Structure formats: structure tokens, C-alpha cells
Computed example of a mutant assay.
Amino acid sequence: MTITTLIVPGLNSSGSAHWQSWFETRLPDAVRVIQSDWKRANLPEWSSRIRREIARRSGPVLIAAHSFGALAAVQAAEDYRERVQGALLVAPADPDKFGVAGALPEGPLGFPATLVASANDPWLSVDKAFALALRWGADFVDLGAAGHINAESGFGPWPFGLSLLRQLETRRVWEGGRGAGGTDPVPAAGRRLVTPEAAAALAKWREQPARTRRARSSGSEATIADDVSGFVASPRSAWATVRGNPGV
């Protein structure tokens, strides 16, 4: 069955140099959710556009959302839990800054999710990002000092992020169909989707000078794949714990 990937940008959409635009070139079944007003953060309107795109598809969907788009995506996906294969939530905007915290899910999303955050994101602190991951039952990946994880901070071609998205495709299988009648005996929040080897590779990447790090994050897929060997489709037994783990 075909899985549609919904690309959900944040405010002002995502330009051609953004990783979401690059995702579209790599995923033949990707569909960008278009908002009527990219400059106005209207959660009900944005969410309704996402719901409409999900409803138009008969099969499962993956979501790759950024910034305010991540907030709209989790609200919209609440109504389609059984249809959402997984959601990659990158650099979500701070719900409190937009006055929408009370409109967002207060518990686990009901489908696999990975929240990717940055230590110096101007739109959301890493501690708040981790709190959202806990609240939503999402896996958490801290990229270190990566800004808002957009084109301006060097995230154009992003094979590492694409690996995270593709890993979500198989999570329901690993977890016995969680969200569709299965159970997940290990709480999702607070885990990294990486093997210890891949965690060490990511830590080494974070230690590089910012300029070099940005270049590598935009490098060839082969280069990044070598750096994170063992990252994709790592079994649960090999996942590394997230917070308070030195060097991870």
C-alpha cells in the first residue's frame, strides 16, 4: 500500500533550500500542505488544511512537519490516529508564544512520533521541546546547537532527517501495531532512535565547528549514511537512552 508523506511547513512556508523541499525531491509520494496565509499562525485554519489532505488519501500517511506546522500537524492528526503511520516533528514552535498550548494534545499522540530539537532554537527551548516529547509519547533527538533546523542554519539536503522519517514507516510493525490495537511495553518518550554506535557518531558530529557541521549536514547521502551506520531500522534493544547520557 502506498504511504503518502505530508510535508507540513511552518510560517512563511519552506523555500527551495529547506530540508522539507529536499524531502519532496526524494519522496515520490510526498504532498506539501498549502496554507491560505503563510504569514498568519492560525492553528484551526492550518489544522483543517492538514485534515483535508489526510482525508483525501485512502491509505496511511507519514507527516514531516516543521515549526508551527508541527503544532498544526499534531492537532490535526488526533482525528486520524489510525491512519497516521508516524510523524517527524522538527523544531516545533513554542505553543505558549502563539497562545495555543491548550488546543494541543495533552497526552500520547497514539501513533509513532519523533521530535527533533536544537539547543539554541530561538522558537523553543530544548527543555520545553523535551517536555513536549514526554507529553506526546514521542522519541526525542537533540541535534545540539542547530538553530531552528532550517535552511538558514544549514539544513538543506538532510539525509539524517530522512532516515528518521523512513524509520517511522516501520515503527508500527516493531511495536506490534501501536495505535491500532497493539501495545508498547516500553514508554517511547526519553529514548533515541539510535544504536549506541550511531549515538556516538552523532555526538562526534556535534563536536565539530559549526561551519563544518553545517557542511556535513548538507553533504552527500553516502557520507551521512556512513556516519550513522546502524541508525536506520535499529531494533529497540539497541536504542540508547536520551537525557543525562554523557556523550550522547
Rank of each mutant, 00 (worst) to 15 (best):
S14W: 00
T114N: 10
G161E: 00
N12C: 10
W123N: 15
A145G: 14
A180L: 15
A131I: 06
L132T: 03
A131H: 11
P157F: 02
A131G: 11
T2H: 10
S153L: 03
V100Q: 01
L162Q: 08
Q75R: 14
E152N: 12
L88H: 01
H148N: 08
E207F: 09
Q167I: 11
P157L: 00
P235F: 01
A101K: 15
A215I: 12
P112I: 00
S58F: 11
G137S: 00
W123T: 15
G69F: 06
P105W: 02
A151Q: 13
I3S: 09
E207L: 13
A55R: 10
R51W: 06
L168T: 02
P108T: 14
L109M: 02
D37V: 10
E106V: 10
A203C: 08
V173L: 14
L71C: 04
Q208R: 13
E45I: 10
F68V: 08
G176A: 05
S58M: 12
V232T: 12
S48D: 15
R40I: 12
L115K: 01
G69R: 01
W46G: 01
D127G: 11
P92F: 05
R51I: 06
R81N: 02
A203E: 14
A73I: 05
A72I: 01
W22P: 07
I54S: 08
T212G: 09
D227E: 13
A17Q: 14
S217M: 14
P122G: 00
D37R: 09
P209G: 06
G177F: 03
L168R: 01
L89D: 02
V31S: 11
W174M: 13
E221K: 10
D79A: 12
D79F: 09
A17M: 11
A222K: 09
F140G: 01
L165E: 03
N12A: 13
V116Q: 00
A180E: 15
L134D: 12
A200G: 13
P60R: 11
I50W: 00
L124N: 13
A72G: 07
E169G: 06
R51Q: 15
R57Y: 07
